[in-house]
């Protein structure tokens, strides 16, 4: 059974019908990429899953439990973490404090928090070097690492990343995607939203293409990379 299953999801932003019946499935251990143009509904999909927006219709099931309509703060506790778009770190908190925030749902379990911090620092040695530095003084790439690390502190089973490559230098983009693969190798299922379709499909097992609130295409990532329409519309080939 799929870890995350979305059926016929409809979401509105005010009067704008942003998602018009999205169906999506993520199996345990997979990396799934969600690609599409601006305004296709990629971010909306993530925000609906994480509970920041309530769907009008449709169901979201995570690990057999319905989570549509559950408040965001409870969804985190169930094992779904989101890395928000645009590196929303707390710039006046230190790296360590930012990480502690991610572990909020673990409560006072100091041992688990310490263990997670260890794991996160192993993954991002750069952050350990800067653990007492203020978030705002980190470089763009380091800030992106920090948002990912912060989300990992909650020990998620499903990690959702929203445009992790946004505004980063090409070399850093490569590093970030390598990290995504590494996190996945540790057993964390990943749902990735990206405008950088090529990079996103290269790292993923499967992909979905979203257009104006509908899933128009889905399948194994390799297949999508070869697909005529995808190549034309999203990979900039003729």
């Amino acid at each position: 059974m799929a870890l995350l299953k979305i059926e016929n999801l409809h979401t509105y932003y005010g009067h704008v019908h942003a998602l018009k019946g999205v169906d999506l499935e993520v199996e345990e251990g997979e990396i799934v990429s969600l690609i599409g143009a601006n305004g296709a509904g990629k971010t909306t999909t993530l925000r609906t899953i994480s509970g920041l927006i309530r769907p009008v219709q449709g169901t979201i099931t995570f690990d057999g439990q319905t989570i549509s309509g559950v408040p965001a703060h409870q969804i985190v506790g169930k094992g779904v973490s989101q890395v928000p778009e645009g590196r929303q770190i707390f710039s006046t908190l230190t790296v360590t404090e930012n990480l502690n925030m991610g572990a909020y749902t673990l409560g006072g379990d100091k041992e688990a928090i310490e263990q997670n911090r260890r794991r996160v620092y192993d993954l991002f040695p750069r952050l350990e070097e800067r653990k007492n530095q203020l978030g705002g003084t980190l470089s763009g790439g380091e800030q992106q690492m920090l948002t990912i690390a912060r989300a990992l502190m909650a020990q998620p089973r499903l990690l959702m990343l929203d445009e992790p490559s946004l505004g980063l230098a090409p070399l850093l983009v490569k590093t970030i995607f390598e990290t995504v693969r590494e996190i996945n190798a540790h057993g964390v299922t990943i749902l990735l939203v990206e405008q950088n379709a090529r990079a996103a499909l290269k790292v993923a097992h499967r992909g979905y293409v979203l257009e104006t609130g509908h899933v128009v295409l889905s399948g194994p990532a390799r297949g999508l990379l070869q697909d005529e329409r995808v190549r034309k519309a999203y990979l900039g080939e003729k």
Binding site: L52, P71, A72, H73, V76, Q82, G102, Y104, T105
Partner: peptide, 12 residues
Amino acid sequence: EDQVAAEAMGID
């Protein structure tokens, strides 16, 4: 500091 981020981190 940031209400949406706080909510997304599991804070009620």
